[in-house]
Amino acid sequence: MIRDIVKPTLTLAAVAFICTLLLSYVQKFTEPAIKRQKGENQDEALKLVLPGFSVGDAQKISMAGVEFLFWIGKKKVDYKTVKGYAFITAGAGYGGNIESMVGVDESGKILGVSILNQSETPGLGARCVEVANRETLWDYIKNGMPARDYNKERRIPWFQNQFEGIDANAEVRITRRGVWNPEMRPQLLETNAISALTGATITTAAVVQSIRLGMTTLKKALSMRLPDTDGGAQ
């Protein structure tokens, strides 16, 4: 009886112990890489959504039990300092949450949107991070692969690009006009609209909805803070 119960239990415990030990070592080994990678992502996104701004440290505020992260950036334009805000917001897409960073100026005009995390369906919703590609695979085979240096020049996916200049305080309309191109910009800006991803209305709506929600939270967060911590007077 004792041999039947104690011995297998001890074996299992020993194996579990060794496995955990091994894993904790692997975890220690990979942790810095995971952390660095996350930080790099955030820094890159900040550069994208607040171009030319010098951005301060991240500020955390808890809103209804959910953490809200935002940044305040400053830029000199014609001897005047203008402020810009960036925040991280999330919306429910089709395959889970879509997390994006949004940069706005003082009037609420969007300076840039960068989608940080998404798990949408490839070919449909996942096209929200797709870079408009004019070359096909055959062109690449014929002309050779271009040198892909992402750190130097990161091309902005078209879906995110079209948010630039949209007023985040007003209602953002969704139209169905296919893949966005720069020629469409003036027309879309006039109606404060964006072009939806074909076949992925839920994804599009989730991003728009999350921007609206993030704006509301940002305003609340800014009004909650005391004026003297606002980073100096104008």
């Binding site: 209804a64 039990g65 959910v66 999330a90 919306g91 429910a92 889970g96 949450n97 929600l213």
Partner: peptide, 11 residues
């Protein structure tokens, strides 16, 4: 635990 579906803004 991985996703706050369907609304990530309410815990």
């Amino acid at each position: 635990i991985s996703s706050g579906f369907p609304d990530p803004n309410v815990d």
